[in-house]
Write a protein that binds this DNA or RNA. Structure first.
Lengths: 207, 207
DNA sequence: TGTACATCAGTGAACGCGCGTTCACTGATGTAC
DNA sequence: TGTACATCAGTGAACGCGCGTTCACTGATGTAC
């Protein structure tokens, strides 16, 4: 940490963190290499010792985001075990919590326009995150009679879509699009109604 | 239409359409005043006869988008009458159809970062669109026993969030995030399960 | 411990570029008489 | 129908700016002996 004289010590990570700050403050388009370098106390040219360029910085921010995201989701999933329902609900809540806590990562991941297939590392990190949610959905869907059971991938896509929609529309300080309800409540009730529709929770709450 | 010599005739609208094309092709960040002017066959300076600047062009694109959006949703709502359920489902389908048919408008509205409160005209157009969905939700929620009825604003926010999430994650050619299912199916089934959770459609389809 | 040396992270100056915006202007258009 | 004139949409040149990126360089660091 900290400067040790001429050499920075951990410039690569310091640049990622500067990028994340700037992405939050100015949006993915407003982020510039020069400003990130400045914020890290370094000349713009120094960036090129650690990254291939601007896009590469954003991609690395997104990769770290997916890694954290997967960890957070995995932790939530584990914490709900052995109940498939509790695990699933915790996972859903973790989605919004992640977006709140790591807005820069979230933007880099979902709003910066970088492709998840840009590099194998990025694709792997993204895949790991997706898999956690899909596994939680698969576990839970075992409780649905086979005949009426939707594919787990569809089930998790629904939840992912609603979570993402709530984040984008109501959790970000989307200028002028304030939610009539706290985003957390909105997502909680939305998922609740959805799960009731699948017959996974009873008409009046309990299993 | 068409040039009539020196004066363009309808440059303002031609510029909006050029902006929409560019937004689709290059994203909201990639859009430039100069290129829009060029595409309209005009000098960049000419833009300033019709707009206050770059942001104003995007805002006008978004405003026209909200106006079309509201019309499309209203038309869908009307077409489902007198059935509240049919009207609601048609409105949900219209959301995705709009995003497909008017991608430039959609991006200007939801991904460009311009505030919906930037101007009274923009806010009014956005409000009109929101109101249609909320009205469809209110009509439909009359069929839920009052004790278990969620607020219509919450109900419509859920549907809006799921629709928006499906569009963002699975309907755009989000590089590398191809859906395992067609977005239309995903949204249709998602809304179906949600409505079943509200007790608005029976466990095996019919009302 | 001291010296010579290889490494390589960061410097500082420079580049070409295209951007958004301004300005005084020009000349096509429509109108008044 | 013809002429004079006001309007104002679009021109073309120019601006200052900050961007991403390159390059030869320098000097701190760690290692071999």
């Amino acid at each position: 940490m900290g400067k040790r004289g001429y050499h920075h010590g951990n410039l690569r990570q310091a640049l990622v963190e500067a990028a994340l700050d700037l992405i939050v403050a100015r949006g993915p388009a407003g982020f510039t290499v020069s400003e990130a370098a400045k914020q890290a106390g370094v000349t713009p040219a120094a960036v090129y010792r650690h990254f291939d360029g601007r896009e590469d910085m954003i991609a690395e921010s997104a990769r770290q985001g997916y890694a954290i995201f997967a960890d957070v989701m995995q932790y939530a999933y584990d914490s709900g075990q052995p109940s498939a329902l509790a695990a699933f609900e915790a996972t859903g809540r973790a989605y919004l919590a992640f977006a709140r806590k790591y807005p820069g990562h979230y933007i880099a991941m979902f709003e910066s326009g970088i492709s998840v297939n840009r590099s194998p590392e990025l694709a792997a990190a993204a895949g790991r995150a997706r898999d956690v949610l899909e596994r939680a959905a698969r576990d839970l869907s075992q409780h649905i009679p086979e005949a009426r059971r939707p594919p787990a991938a569809m089930f998790s896509a629904h939840i992912w879509a609603m979570s993402h929609g709530v984040v984008e529309l109501f959790a970000r300080n989307s200028p002028g699009r304030a939610s009539p309800f706290p985003a957390e409540d909105l997502l909680e009730t939305g998922i609740g109604i959805y799960l009731r529709g699948l017959g996974l929770i009873g008409p009046d709450d309990g299993t």
